[in-house]
Each structure stands twice: as structure tokens, then as C-alpha cells.
Computed example of a mutant assay.
Amino acid sequence: MVGRNKFYKLLHKHHLILKPARCRHTTNSNHNYFKYKNIAKGMTPTRPGQL
């Protein structure tokens, strides 16, 4: 019987194990680009295409 650690070492030795997936960050709110204010806040559109 082979233990878990020895089994993983064996897989790694023969390049049969995949690397764990990296955690990817998709949103960067701390950028240096100009941030526009929300001018539609508080408006209630009364007809289509008003905004």
C-alpha cells in the first residue's frame, strides 16, 4: 500500500500531475484611468432611449 504523499511524489516525478489552477483576478478597480461620475443616478426615464 502506497501512502498519499509517496503517490503524489511518484506522479510528479513522471510528470503525470497537473499544477493547481491559479486564482485569477478579473477586475482592477485601482487603476489610473479617469472615472466618470454616474450622471444617470436619480433619473427616471419616461420613454425609450432617453438615457
Rank of each mutant, 00 (worst) to 15 (best):
V2L: 12
V2E: 11
V2G: 03
G3S: 12
G3Y: 06
G3A: 02
R4K: 08
R4H: 07
R4Q: 04
R4W: 06
N5S: 08
N5F: 02
N5D: 14
N5W: 03
K6M: 04
K6S: 08
K6P: 00
K6D: 13
F7E: 10
F7S: 07
F7P: 00
F7I: 06
Y8A: 00
Y8W: 12
Y8H: 05
Y8F: 11
K9C: 07
K9L: 10
K9V: 13
K9R: 12
L10K: 07
L10M: 12
L10R: 09
L10N: 08
L10T: 13
L11N: 10
L11C: 15
L11R: 11
H12N: 10
H12C: 02
H12I: 04
H12S: 12
H14W: 15
H14V: 10
H14N: 15
H15T: 03
H15F: 14
H15Q: 15
H15N: 15
L16K: 09
L16H: 08
I17Q: 12
I17R: 02
L18R: 05
L18S: 09
L18W: 05
L18I: 01
L18P: 00
P20Y: 00
P20H: 07
A21T: 09
A21D: 13
A21L: 11
R22C: 06
R22D: 07
C23E: 06
R24G: 01
H25G: 00
H25R: 01
H25I: 01
T26K: 00
T27Y: 04
T27A: 08
T27V: 15
N28M: 06
N28W: 03
S29M: 07
S29F: 07
N30T: 06
N30K: 14
H31C: 05
H31Y: 02
H31V: 00
H31N: 15
N32I: 02
N32C: 09
F34I: 06
F34R: 00
K35C: 01
Y36E: 12
Y36Q: 04
Y36F: 09
Y36D: 07
K37P: 00
K37S: 06
N38G: 03
N38L: 08
A40V: 12
A40D: 15
G42P: 01
G42I: 01
G42M: 04
M43D: 13
M43S: 12
M43Q: 14
M43R: 13
M43E: 14
T44K: 11
P45W: 05
P45Y: 03
T46C: 08
R47K: 15
R47H: 14
R47T: 09
P48F: 06
P48M: 05
P48H: 07
G49Q: 09
G49R: 08
Q50T: 05
Q50L: 13
Q50W: 06
Q50F: 07
L51Y: 13
